[in-house]
Design a protein around this nucleic acid. Sequence first.
DNA 1: AATAATCATCAAATAATTTTCAAATATACC
DNA 2: GGTATATTTGAAAATTATTTGATGATTATT
Lengths: 229, 229
Amino acid sequence: MKKILIVEDEPSIAELQKDYLELSGFDVDLIDSGKKGLDQALHETYDLLILDVMLPEINGFEICKRVREEKDIPILMVSAKKEDIDKIRGLGLGADDYISKPFSPSELVARVKAHLTRYERLSAKSTQTNKQIQIRGIQIDQASRRVYVNKHEVVMTMKEFDLLLFFARNPNQVFSRDHLFERIWGFDSMGDPVTVTVHIRKLREKIEQDPSNPQYIETVWGAGYRFTV
Amino acid sequence: MKKILIVEDEPSIAELQKDYLELSGFDVDLIDSGKKGLDQALHETYDLLILDVMLPEINGFEICKRVREEKDIPILMVSAKKEDIDKIRGLGLGADDYISKPFSPSELVARVKAHLTRYERLSAKSTQTNKQIQIRGIQIDQASRRVYVNKHEVVMTMKEFDLLLFFARNPNQVFSRDHLFERIWGFDSMGDPVTVTVHIRKLREKIEQDPSNPQYIETVWGAGYRFTV
DNA sequence: AATAATCATCAAATAATTTTCAAATATACC
DNA sequence: GGTATATTTGAAAATTATTTGATGATTATT
């Protein structure tokens, strides 16, 4: 869950922001003074910062600049004054975005989400991990089409891989030979579904400890096969 | 000088954008069709992209998605429709910002500047490494287009270099011949994807110890090729 | 304009996968 | 327990994909 810090001294606005962001599933902290806000931002870990420009003690510009020196998180500035907006733009403060008051709460939420998404994209190459399927001792990397059984790589042929992937994506369901043939081979493919059997065997030889006693791909008599989790 | 690509089919708007951005010191290219725009965006180097959503042939969403898969530059989407704006937000396209028509030119310039600044800030750390790719025994210097295998320079032709660079940027992923052909040769390029094969071989002859037993660019039967790290 | 380098095309050779088939084995039902 | 039905298995045949070398076309360089 993403943590957001809001530094805003006007209670009504602060509460409005907090409510909407929490409703969208964020973990929100609220602070009403610039001094405390800066301290909190520097010493706690947040994923995003929302700063009001006009604040007691230390203003939003100053906080932005100071935080930016140390932290690399998205910072959104909020202000009612047009001059402020220009200042945010012009001055190289390192703010990521600005929102002018009055703003619609949904606009705020949209911006927050956009910045968090972008930040994730730029910082971590998280794209790699979401293509991985891990089921019991079997790990499937879709992008590289590699399969590991108990951490050891097992080289699969195309049909074997497709079959395994299909099972892994639909575990604990029984599929008939005909059904599997349609799904993996294509519904307009000519040929005989019995060929599925042979591939099941090949697959078992590669992933099962004892292929005649399968622990992953089980035979369901009269119905088909099931990848058991 | 920062290079910007605008993909916009309405000449009056396109010219307006171009004029203002050039006045602000940017180097601007203008393209009026989605297909050509995507091709240009993928094969030239730009610092920022401005995409109209409604375009002939290929729309802005599609371009955004495809460019994002390869390039890590700010993308601004432009649209008149409110539904589009919502779509840009909602769909995880990877757009960095959206601008609704009609827009003030100064607003556009401000946004462009903001995104370029932010992007520079974020990539500042990795800037050195950005131009150099080092994978196992292979070092690629993008700026000079030089390749070193085990510290020894290997001279590459254009296609060989492009192919290697693409693989190096996307390691451990299987790409089909068709996919590679689209990416390296351009998606609207006529010709046959089998030509990829020949270049793969040439590349292997240059970077592999034993080209018939490749350690870097592996053949994944029935699926394509994979640059293994 | 000549030369060199690169790129595209093709067909033969090779390699790997997929399919087929029949015998063997297992399961369900009477 | 016996029979019909379903599944497994092994090996060979058929198919499909990839590699390779040679050749002509294109492009850049001198």
